[in-house]
Protein backbone atom coordinates (compact mmCIF):
# COMPACT_ATOMS: atom_id res chain seq x y z
CA UNK A 1 0.00 0.00 0.00
CA UNK A 2 1.51 3.31 -1.02
CA UNK A 3 1.70 6.04 1.55
CA UNK A 4 -0.64 9.03 1.23
CA UNK A 5 0.75 12.43 0.25
CA UNK A 6 0.54 13.67 3.80
CA UNK A 7 0.71 11.06 6.47
CA UNK A 8 0.34 11.58 10.17
CA UNK A 9 1.94 8.72 12.06
CA UNK A 10 1.45 7.86 15.71
CA UNK A 11 0.99 11.47 16.68
CA UNK A 12 0.74 12.01 20.43
CA UNK A 13 0.39 15.27 22.27
CA UNK A 14 0.64 15.62 26.01
CA UNK A 15 0.66 18.74 28.13
CA UNK A 16 1.47 19.10 31.80
CA UNK A 17 -1.89 19.34 33.58
CA UNK A 18 -0.62 21.79 36.17
CA UNK A 19 -0.76 19.28 39.00
CA UNK A 20 2.40 17.38 38.21
CA UNK A 21 0.73 14.92 35.87
CA UNK A 22 0.24 14.96 32.14
CA UNK A 23 -2.85 15.56 30.09
CA UNK A 24 -3.01 13.51 26.93
CA UNK A 25 -4.84 15.44 24.26
CA UNK A 26 -4.59 12.66 21.70
CA UNK A 27 -2.49 9.56 21.38
CA UNK A 28 -1.20 7.50 18.46
CA UNK A 29 -3.29 9.34 15.90
CA UNK A 30 -2.83 8.11 12.32
CA UNK A 31 -4.41 9.46 9.21
CA UNK A 32 -3.45 10.50 5.71
CA UNK A 33 -4.40 13.05 3.12
CA UNK A 34 -4.07 12.45 -0.61
CA UNK A 35 -2.70 15.00 -3.01
CA UNK A 36 -5.34 17.45 -4.19
CA UNK A 37 -7.78 16.34 -1.53
CA UNK A 38 -9.89 18.72 0.56
CA UNK A 39 -10.11 17.26 4.05
CA UNK A 40 -12.08 18.82 6.87
CA UNK A 41 -11.72 17.86 10.49
CA UNK A 42 -14.78 18.22 12.73
CA UNK A 43 -14.91 17.93 16.47
CA UNK A 44 -15.87 19.72 19.63
CA UNK A 45 -13.73 22.45 21.16
CA UNK A 46 -10.84 21.13 23.18
CA UNK A 47 -10.48 17.87 21.28
CA UNK A 48 -7.10 18.91 19.91
CA UNK A 49 -7.99 19.96 16.37
CA UNK A 50 -6.03 23.17 16.69
CA UNK A 51 -3.10 21.28 18.18
CA UNK A 52 -3.05 18.99 15.15
CA UNK A 53 -3.22 22.05 12.92
CA UNK A 54 -0.32 23.73 14.70
CA UNK A 55 1.75 20.56 14.42
CA UNK A 56 1.01 20.29 10.70
CA UNK A 57 1.93 23.96 10.30
CA UNK A 58 5.17 23.33 12.17
CA UNK A 59 4.31 25.95 14.79
CA UNK A 60 4.16 23.33 17.57
CA UNK A 61 6.08 20.15 18.26
CA UNK A 62 4.22 16.92 19.04
CA UNK A 63 5.21 14.93 22.11
CA UNK A 64 5.88 12.00 19.81
CA UNK A 65 5.08 10.84 16.32
CA UNK A 66 5.85 12.27 12.92
CA UNK A 67 4.14 14.08 10.10
CA UNK A 68 5.46 13.15 6.67
CA UNK A 69 4.72 15.13 3.57
CA UNK A 70 5.75 13.76 0.20
CA UNK A 71 7.85 11.20 2.06
CA UNK A 72 9.80 13.64 4.22
CA UNK A 73 9.23 14.29 7.90
CA UNK A 74 8.25 17.91 8.49
CA UNK A 75 9.90 19.98 11.16
CA UNK A 76 9.31 23.66 11.72
CA UNK A 77 7.16 26.00 9.67
CA UNK A 78 7.62 26.14 5.93
CA UNK A 79 6.31 27.92 2.87
CA UNK A 80 5.18 24.50 1.65
CA UNK A 81 2.49 24.56 4.32
CA UNK A 82 0.45 27.76 4.08
CA UNK A 83 -1.82 28.72 6.95
CA UNK A 84 -5.00 30.77 7.08
CA UNK A 85 -5.71 31.63 10.70
CA UNK A 86 -9.11 32.29 12.22
CA UNK A 87 -8.14 35.84 13.21
CA UNK A 88 -6.89 36.55 9.65
CA UNK A 89 -3.33 37.36 10.85
CA UNK A 90 -2.90 40.14 8.36
CA UNK A 91 -0.18 42.63 9.18
CA UNK A 92 -2.22 45.71 10.15
CA UNK A 93 0.35 48.26 9.00
CA UNK A 94 0.27 46.95 5.43
CA UNK A 95 -2.50 47.42 2.89
CA UNK A 96 -4.40 44.38 1.62
CA UNK A 97 -2.27 44.33 -1.51
CA UNK A 98 0.96 44.66 0.44
CA UNK A 99 -0.06 41.82 2.72
CA UNK A 100 -0.38 39.55 -0.31
CA UNK A 101 2.86 40.91 -1.76
CA UNK A 102 4.54 40.14 1.57
CA UNK A 103 3.68 36.47 1.09
CA UNK A 104 4.55 36.35 -2.61
CA UNK A 105 7.91 38.05 -2.01
CA UNK A 106 8.73 35.51 0.69
CA UNK A 107 7.84 32.65 -1.65
CA UNK A 108 9.48 33.92 -4.83
CA UNK A 109 12.54 35.82 -3.70
CA UNK A 110 13.89 36.09 -7.24
CA UNK A 111 10.78 37.68 -8.77
CA UNK A 112 10.85 41.28 -9.91
CA UNK A 113 8.62 43.71 -7.98
CA UNK A 114 6.40 44.08 -11.04
CA UNK A 115 5.86 40.35 -11.25
CA UNK A 116 5.12 40.14 -7.52
CA UNK A 117 2.60 42.97 -7.89
CA UNK A 118 0.87 41.39 -10.86
CA UNK A 119 0.67 37.98 -9.18
CA UNK A 120 -0.71 39.53 -5.98
CA UNK A 121 -3.35 41.54 -7.82
CA UNK A 122 -4.41 38.45 -9.73
CA UNK A 123 -5.04 36.46 -6.57
CA UNK A 124 -6.86 39.33 -4.87
CA UNK A 125 -9.07 39.53 -7.95
CA UNK A 126 -9.77 35.81 -7.63
CA UNK A 127 -11.37 36.41 -4.23
CA UNK A 128 -13.30 39.38 -5.57
CA UNK A 129 -11.06 42.19 -4.32
CA UNK A 130 -10.24 44.70 -7.02
CA UNK A 131 -9.88 48.45 -7.38
CA UNK A 132 -9.31 50.88 -4.54
CA UNK A 133 -10.26 48.43 -1.87
CA UNK A 134 -6.95 46.55 -2.17
CA UNK A 135 -5.07 49.64 -1.01
CA UNK A 136 -6.97 49.77 2.28
CA UNK A 137 -5.48 48.69 5.57
CA UNK A 138 -7.03 45.62 7.22
CA UNK A 139 -8.65 47.82 9.88
CA UNK A 140 -10.63 49.51 7.10
CA UNK A 141 -11.91 46.20 5.74
CA UNK A 142 -14.82 44.10 6.97
CA UNK A 143 -14.14 40.73 8.55
CA UNK A 144 -15.16 38.95 5.36
CA UNK A 145 -12.84 41.05 3.22
CA UNK A 146 -9.96 40.51 5.63
CA UNK A 147 -10.41 36.76 5.43
CA UNK A 148 -10.53 37.03 1.63
CA UNK A 149 -7.17 38.79 1.70
CA UNK A 150 -5.82 36.09 3.97
CA UNK A 151 -7.08 33.37 1.61
CA UNK A 152 -5.60 35.20 -1.39
CA UNK A 153 -2.25 35.42 0.42
CA UNK A 154 -2.30 31.69 1.13
CA UNK A 155 -3.36 30.59 -2.38
CA UNK A 156 -0.95 33.00 -4.11
CA UNK A 157 1.93 31.04 -2.58
CA UNK A 158 0.83 27.66 -3.98
CA UNK A 159 1.76 25.76 -0.82
CA UNK A 160 1.89 21.98 -1.06
CA UNK A 161 -0.57 21.85 1.80
CA UNK A 162 -2.96 24.61 2.75
CA UNK A 163 -4.10 24.67 6.37
CA UNK A 164 -7.28 26.53 7.23
CA UNK A 165 -7.84 27.01 10.96
CA UNK A 166 -11.55 27.76 11.36
CA UNK A 167 -11.23 30.43 8.70
CA UNK A 168 -14.86 31.49 8.81
CA UNK A 169 -15.40 31.14 12.55
CA UNK A 170 -15.48 34.87 13.21
CA UNK A 171 -17.80 35.75 10.32
CA UNK A 172 -21.56 36.15 10.28
CA UNK A 173 -23.55 33.39 8.60
CA UNK A 174 -24.35 35.29 5.39
CA UNK A 175 -20.77 36.41 4.78
CA UNK A 176 -19.59 32.92 5.61
CA UNK A 177 -21.79 31.50 2.85
CA UNK A 178 -20.40 33.78 0.15
CA UNK A 179 -16.80 33.27 1.17
CA UNK A 180 -17.25 29.50 1.29
CA UNK A 181 -18.31 29.61 -2.34
CA UNK A 182 -15.41 31.88 -3.19
CA UNK A 183 -13.06 29.44 -1.50
CA UNK A 184 -14.54 26.63 -3.60
CA UNK A 185 -14.12 28.71 -6.73
CA UNK A 186 -10.47 29.52 -6.06
CA UNK A 187 -9.78 25.95 -4.95
CA UNK A 188 -11.35 24.23 -7.94
CA UNK A 189 -9.00 24.39 -10.84
CA UNK A 190 -5.99 24.20 -8.56
CA UNK A 191 -4.56 20.92 -7.37
CA UNK A 192 -4.35 22.43 -3.92
CA UNK A 193 -4.34 19.99 -1.02
CA UNK A 194 -6.34 21.51 1.83
CA UNK A 195 -6.73 20.56 5.47
CA UNK A 196 -9.34 22.58 7.31
CA UNK A 197 -10.76 22.81 10.81
CA UNK A 198 -14.35 23.79 11.35
CA UNK A 199 -17.26 23.56 13.78
CA UNK A 200 -19.83 23.97 11.08
CA UNK A 201 -21.33 20.75 9.70
CA UNK A 202 -22.89 22.31 6.60
CA UNK A 203 -19.66 24.08 5.77
CA UNK A 204 -17.79 20.79 6.08
CA UNK A 205 -20.19 18.97 3.72
CA UNK A 206 -20.10 21.79 1.18
CA UNK A 207 -16.32 21.96 1.04
CA UNK A 208 -14.87 18.58 1.84
CA UNK A 209 -13.95 15.48 -0.10
CA UNK A 210 -13.63 13.74 3.22
CA UNK A 211 -14.49 14.66 6.78
CA UNK A 212 -12.44 13.40 9.72
CA UNK A 213 -14.46 13.13 12.92
CA UNK A 214 -12.76 13.54 16.25
CA UNK A 215 -14.05 12.31 19.59
CA UNK A 216 -13.92 14.53 22.63
CA UNK A 217 -10.71 14.78 24.61
CA UNK A 218 -8.79 13.79 26.61
CA UNK A 219 -7.47 10.81 24.61
CA UNK A 220 -9.27 12.20 21.59
CA UNK A 221 -9.23 10.02 18.51
CA UNK A 222 -9.80 10.59 14.87
CA UNK A 223 -12.55 8.02 14.92
CA UNK A 224 -14.11 8.17 11.49
CA UNK A 225 -13.36 9.34 8.00
CA UNK A 226 -16.59 10.13 6.18
CA UNK A 227 -16.47 10.33 2.38
CA UNK A 228 -18.64 13.09 1.00
CA UNK A 229 -20.36 11.36 -1.87
CA UNK A 230 -21.78 14.48 -3.46
CA UNK A 231 -20.34 15.34 -6.86
CA UNK A 232 -18.64 18.65 -7.55
CA UNK A 233 -19.12 21.43 -8.45
CA UNK A 234 -21.29 22.03 -5.43
CA UNK A 235 -23.25 25.05 -4.39
CA UNK A 236 -25.00 25.63 -1.10
CA UNK A 237 -28.42 25.70 -2.68
CA UNK A 238 -27.99 22.59 -4.78
CA UNK A 239 -26.29 20.16 -2.42
CA UNK A 240 -29.28 20.13 -0.06
CA UNK A 241 -31.28 18.45 -2.83
CA UNK A 242 -28.79 15.67 -3.28
CA UNK A 243 -30.02 12.35 -1.90
CA UNK A 244 -26.86 11.82 0.13
CA UNK A 245 -26.87 15.22 1.78
CA UNK A 246 -29.18 14.59 4.71
CA UNK A 247 -27.91 11.08 5.23
CA UNK A 248 -24.38 12.40 5.61
CA UNK A 249 -25.50 15.35 7.67
CA UNK A 250 -27.49 13.09 9.92
CA UNK A 251 -24.51 10.84 10.44
CA UNK A 252 -22.32 13.80 11.37
CA UNK A 253 -24.91 15.26 13.73
CA UNK A 254 -25.30 11.92 15.45
CA UNK A 255 -21.56 11.59 15.82
CA UNK A 256 -21.00 15.04 17.23
CA UNK A 257 -24.12 15.02 19.35
CA UNK A 258 -23.83 11.58 20.87
CA UNK A 259 -21.04 9.28 19.81
CA UNK A 260 -18.18 11.77 20.22
CA UNK A 261 -19.05 11.78 23.92
CA UNK A 262 -19.55 8.05 24.22
CA UNK A 263 -16.18 7.42 22.64
CA UNK A 264 -14.46 10.12 24.69
CA UNK A 265 -11.83 9.39 27.30
CA UNK A 266 -11.30 5.80 26.20
CA UNK A 267 -7.65 4.96 26.14
CA UNK A 268 -7.06 2.46 23.39
CA UNK A 269 -3.69 0.80 22.98
CA UNK A 270 -1.86 0.74 19.70
CA UNK A 271 -2.05 2.94 16.63
CA UNK A 272 -5.46 4.40 15.88
CA UNK A 273 -6.80 4.72 12.39
CA UNK A 274 -10.09 6.30 11.44
CA UNK A 275 -12.74 3.95 10.20
CA UNK A 276 -13.90 4.85 6.70
CA UNK A 277 -17.60 5.56 6.37
CA UNK A 278 -19.18 5.87 2.96
CA UNK A 279 -22.79 6.90 2.68
CA UNK A 280 -24.07 6.68 -0.86
CA UNK A 281 -27.65 6.46 -1.93
CA UNK A 282 -28.43 6.49 -5.57
CA UNK A 283 -32.04 7.57 -5.23
CA UNK A 284 -33.90 9.93 -2.96
CA UNK A 285 -34.10 8.48 0.55
CA UNK A 286 -37.23 6.56 1.40
CA UNK A 287 -38.98 7.59 4.56
CA UNK A 288 -37.48 4.91 6.74
CA UNK A 289 -38.47 3.71 10.17
CA UNK A 290 -35.11 4.75 11.47
CA UNK A 291 -34.29 4.85 15.13
CA UNK A 292 -32.37 8.06 14.49
CA UNK A 293 -34.69 11.02 14.14
CA UNK A 294 -33.68 13.24 11.27
CA UNK A 295 -32.45 16.78 11.59
CA UNK A 296 -31.97 16.70 15.27
CA UNK A 297 -30.29 19.73 16.74
CA UNK A 298 -26.97 19.17 18.43
CA UNK A 299 -27.31 19.55 22.15
CA UNK A 300 -23.90 19.44 23.64
Amino acid sequence: MSKPYLSVENLTQQFPDGQGGTLTVFENANFGIEKGEFVVILGHSGCGKSTIMNILAGLAEPTSGVVKMDGFAVSGPSLDRGVVFQNYSLLPWLSALRNVQFGVKARHRDWSPAKVLEHSRMFLAKVGLEGDVIHRKPSQLSGGMRQRVSIARAFANHPKLLLLDEPFGALDALTRGTIQEELLKIWSGTEQTVFMITHDIDEAILLADRILLMTNGPFARVAESVDITIPRPRTRTEIVDHPNYYAIRNHLVQFLGRRSKELAGQKVEGPQRPETVRIARESAPEPEPDANPRLRAVNS
Binding site: A57, G58, L59, G76, P77, S78, L79, R81, G82, V83, F85, N87, S89, L91, F102, G103, A106, R107
Partner: peptide, 12 residues
Protein backbone atom coordinates in the same frame (compact mmCIF):
# COMPACT_ATOMS: atom_id res chain seq x y z
CA UNK B 1 2.36 35.93 18.37
CA UNK B 2 0.06 35.70 15.32
CA UNK B 3 2.25 38.13 13.39
CA UNK B 4 5.40 36.30 14.40
CA UNK B 5 3.70 33.10 13.22
CA UNK B 6 3.02 34.75 9.86
CA UNK B 7 6.74 35.43 9.58
CA UNK B 8 7.54 31.86 10.61
CA UNK B 9 5.16 30.26 8.13
CA UNK B 10 6.71 32.45 5.42
CA UNK B 11 10.19 31.19 6.33
CA UNK B 12 11.58 34.62 7.09
Amino acid sequence: QDWVNVARTHEL
